[in-house]
Design a protein around this nucleic acid. Structure first.
Lengths: 219, 219
DNA sequence: TAAAAAACCTCCCATATGGGAGGTTTTTAT
DNA sequence: ATAAAAACCTCCCATATGGGAGGTTTTTTA
């Protein structure tokens, strides 16, 4: 605390209070870093930044209520491009990783990383403006290889499709879903086919998995 | 560090290294508590305890690879009943909570709790041998109300059923799963029926939802 | 205002899924 | 040693699901 140089200011946004606080402690113990602010979700983070509490680095959970990691990353990239976003996630799928980098993230860290890796990531972000673990680099490269186009533009669902998707994550048969949504079973078939195409799945289980992975349903 | 009295020895088992380490820091900062050991999963924790590294309290994640929270809690309760288990979970469904308490857990904490609540929980565990947050008490009571019998005895799946359940959370058809598991489709039907009965669902979507809610599959 | 797309529909068909009645063999527990 | 259970199987049947060809009506957008 008697250091003369200015510490790197870190912001943490994560709705898991326990993890967030613990992370803050961890980071405050890192040489040269200090936690400037903590937020429960993207909206809270944005509000504080708007009030001129400007961190150098934002440590961000992908899945948050109110304003998730995607939104806030996009907003930061647009309005405060100098703030470096380090994504902290439990998910290790290509899509999420690629999506976050496209939105402007500078690094991606899995939640089961070692604390040393977090330190390395922060250092790398300050020195080289980017952090890529071997694991993430692999995912990025192989991901870019595959579908240069489709994976890049985020999937957009309309309200009707989202509603159907939520019902699909239910033990109701399509016939029953049709009744719930006041349409014929055939229309449900159309929703299903549209979603199958958009989400690149071919079964109801695929729909359920997508919906859960992307937080479109409550568990 | 110059305290005269003996600190309460805490063990942490969680596969999220970052959270685990951070939690350790947090707890080491609590007056009167010290982290004795950290483990990546239940099996690792068990091995250390067998080697006579005996904590007073175990802080346990429900969802871990190798040996999950359920197994290790049952094992601890049977072999080291004096060790108090505090469950740390992201899930807040009645079933999980009730299951853990039946298996011998002494407290249940959500991962988005405040650090203060963790401190309170630890204190309560040492003083009163139990910790119930208001939230968890509610869930317990309402849960007990409903199905006094079935919900109480924890659902036990065997290895074959768990394997099938993991495949069920896949876009593979049962026929393909049968090939993967080297059994006939009819045998798969048996697994399915057994699971439908045990988990009280009646569709594949129900299986998927259960598996995800209970952390039996990786997302 | 014309074209496109979104929202809804009918009829058809193959395969997947869920459910029931029965059976053998191997493993586990008493 | 014997009973129970777990693990595996055959055959049958009804419904659910996934996929295709085609159509009307309303809303959006160029």
């Amino acid at each position: 605390m008697v250091k003369a140089y200015k510490k790197v200011q870190v912001a943490i946004a994560d709705d898991h209070t326990l993890l967030r606080n613990a992370l803050a402690k961890l980071i405050n113990n890192f040489e040269g870093y200090a936690v400037l602010l903590e937020a429960n979700n993207g909206k809270e983070l944005r509000n504080k930044i708007i009030q001129h509490i400007i961190p150098d680095i934002v440590l961000l959970d992908v899945n948050m209520p109110e304003m998730d990691g995607y939104e806030i990353t996009g907003w930061l990239h647009k309005n405060y491009p100098q703030i470096k976003v380090l994504v902290l996630s439990m998910l290790s799928d290509e899509r999420t990783i690629i999506k976050m980098f496209r939105l402007g993230a500078k690094g991606y860290l899995l939640k089961n990383a070692e604390p040393e890796e977090l330190k390395r990531a922060l250092d790398s972000l300050m020195n080289k403006n980017v952090y890529l673990s071997e694991y993430v680099s692999d995912k990025l490269v192989s991901g870019l290889h595959k579908n240069a186009d489709r994976d890049m533009q985020p999937v957009v669902l309309n309200e009707r499709e989202r509603e159907f998707l939520r019902w699909a994550c239910t033990e109701l048969a399509y016939k029953e879903i049709a009744e719930k949504m006041n349409v014929s079973v055939r229309t449900i078939d159309d929703y299903r086919q549209a979603l199958f195409a958009k989400l690149e799945v071919h079964s109801r289980v695929g729909l359920v998995l997508y919906a859960i992975k992307n937080g479109l349903v409550e568990l």
